Computed example of a mutant assay.
Amino acid sequence: MFFRQLFDSETSTYTYLIADEASKTAVLVDSVLEQVERDQKFIAELGLKLGYCLETHLHADHITGAGKLRELTGCINIVPFGANAACADRKIQDGEVLQIGLVEIAAIATLGHTDSHVAYLVNNTHLLTGDSLLIRGCGRTDFQSGNAGALYDCITQKLFTLSDSTLVYPGHDYRGHMVSTIGEEKQFNPRFVGRDRTDFITLMNNLNLPNPQKIMEAVPANQRCGQAA
């Protein structure tokens, strides 16, 4: 398996490039519109063909590059079940496995940050958590039909039951962290350590964070796979 983590400095967004080395078929997870040229060049340099663009959810802080990449490469756009994105070619269900040669990408519903969100477990070793579980944190739950209780349940009952050695690759990081593990997050994540479900809900409901700067632009655009109205 080929795996790379790419970064957009303006929005602190991680994009992930995954490929089956035998078939040269590639997958991009959580692409960024402003980085389409970079990603396309990198994929070409490696001799890969982009087969799929996956989203963990409909983002509020950046516009996806999936629609543009579909125009350029013919790749298939996939969003989580329940996402309000009629533009997508497919919606992936909880438990569904996308098989790319020897690479297995399993969708795990992780609702709570939004009401349509999945994490992707790649070959049972690399977990792309989107905005659900972050490194020493978690996604906010105060817009896009977020639900703090649902997020707590999904992270503690689904993600934290994976092997402690599972690598955690988040959708964002604002402090320079790139990767963690399930074992580390269970031990050190301050949003969860020493907190029960009620404590977590109280904490999340009182964060009082400002809205993402691009929310009014990004959400409608991402419902169109990043394409202009």
Rank of each mutant, 00 (worst) to 15 (best):
Q213A: 12
D173N: 15
G67Q: 02
G149Q: 07
V29L: 15
P190K: 11
F3V: 08
N211E: 11
P170V: 07
A60H: 13
I76M: 10
K49V: 09
I43K: 00
T125G: 04
L17W: 04
L203E: 05
E96I: 02
D142H: 00
I201S: 03
L72A: 10
L134F: 09
P220S: 06
L6N: 05
G47D: 02
L162C: 02
K68H: 03
G47I: 05
R191I: 00
V29H: 12
A19T: 01
N123E: 10
T25W: 01
K158E: 09
Q99S: 08
I76L: 07
N84D: 10
Y120F: 15
A109H: 07
Q35K: 12
Q40I: 11
L54M: 14
V193D: 06
P220I: 02
E45G: 02
M178V: 12
K49N: 08
D173W: 04
F42M: 14
A150Y: 04
G95H: 13
V36M: 07
L6E: 12
E10A: 13
A107G: 12
T161C: 09
H177F: 15
Q223I: 01
F7L: 06
A44H: 05
L121C: 15
F7V: 09
L151C: 07
D39Y: 05
C225K: 09
A106T: 14
H62P: 02
D164K: 08
T56N: 11
L98W: 14
R195Y: 08
G176Q: 12
H126M: 15
F2H: 05
F3T: 09
E185C: 03
C87N: 07
L167R: 10
D142F: 04
D173L: 10
K24V: 00
G226W: 06
L133S: 00
T181L: 12
I76E: 14
L162N: 01
H113Y: 02
T56I: 05
N208K: 09
I18H: 08
K214G: 03
G101V: 05
